[in-house]
């Protein structure tokens, strides 16, 4: 068969284009990670790529208290922020989904607002609020927790709302007709159906908190600093291979978390079948 440009353009070309595009996307999203990982094993004192020599030196430093403490601080902060914002998001998402009331749109805008606003602005605002209220002593962990709950709420509310929409319309009425009280319906019917979404919301919230730097730089205090802020501070002295090792750790932790939850809630997804993936 003779080569036909028209046929090539119609059938093969789109795929070739798509393939190239996908390769670019992966190259730019995975490339930096792989380079950082490679750099962390440098034998040299500077961040060379490709690495010169090989050593675990930088990893030993990354796992010393100087870096381990802010890392654990970030983990604790992220976990608490995730739990708190999810617990607040549950009733809020219910109210927004289920009822029509005055000020509903305003409440929704207020909840989702931080998503639209630069986190930096939220951070500056919160700092000024704390100062004008005379709450300077709450800067550090408490202040950070409040700030992180504010910026994590939109994620939790959105995912809980989305999963509430997947609850089939009449199942709550069916439960009531079978003798289930409102609480029993919530416990045996609604919650099992939205569980995956709630967990996903909490994971999103955790990752958002764990990776935040814009808000945290305003609310941290010495000794109560998330790892991201610590990394930012350290960058003033240049990109040492230690940072590469720390970066790999801060990168892997959320990934591991997502993988674990995906295994658990992925099972849940299987239970609810195709319909819930919609």
């Amino acid at each position: 068969m003779r080569f036909s440009f028209a046929r090539w353009r119609a059938t093969a070309a789109p795929w070739a284009l798509l393939r190239t595009f996908v390769i670019f996307v992966y190259a730019f999203s995975l490339g930096p990670i792989l380079i950082t990982a490679a750099v962390s094993f440098n034998g040299s004192n500077r961040s060379f790529f490709p690495p010169r020599g090989f050593s675990f030196r930088w990893w030993e430093r990354a796992l010393a208290p100087e870096w381990l403490d802010p890392l654990l601080f970030s983990l604790k902060l992220g976990a608490l922020a995730a739990v708190a914002s999810t617990l607040l998001a549950l009733p809020l998402a219910f109210a927004l989904h289920r009822y029509r009331f005055r000020g509903q749109q305003a409440l929704l805008a207020l909840t989702l607002g931080p998503l639209m606003m630069p986190t930096l602005v939220t951070g500056v605002g919160l700092l000024q609020l704390f100062q004008s209220l005379g709450w300077r002593e709450y800067l550090g962990f408490t202040g950070l927790l409040i700030g992180h709950v504010v910026i994590c709420m939109p994620f939790a509310v959105r995912t809980v709302s989305v999963s509430l929409h997947t609850v089939p319309p009449n199942v709550e009425l069916a439960a009531a007709s079978l003798g289930a009280t409102g609480f029993a319906t919530l416990r045996h019917v609604v919650f099992p159906l939205i569980k995956t979404g709630v967990i996903a919301g909490a994971v999103f919230a955790f990752i958002h908190s764990f990776t935040d730097v814009n808000l945290s730089i305003f609310l941290a205090r010495p000794g109560q600093t998330p790892v991201t802020v610590k990394i930012l501070g350290f960058l003033e002295f240049g990109f040492a291979p230690t940072l590469a090792a720390v970066s790999v750790i801060t990168l892997l932790l959320p990934l591991v978390l997502v993988a674990v939850v995906e295994r658990i809630s992925g099972l849940g997804d299987f239970i609810y079948g195709e319909g819930r993936r919609g």
Binding site: N170, L173, V189, L193
Partner: peptide
Amino acid sequence: VFQDYALFPH
């Protein structure tokens, strides 16, 4: 008995 059956999918 509902038109869409309203079975509990889980």
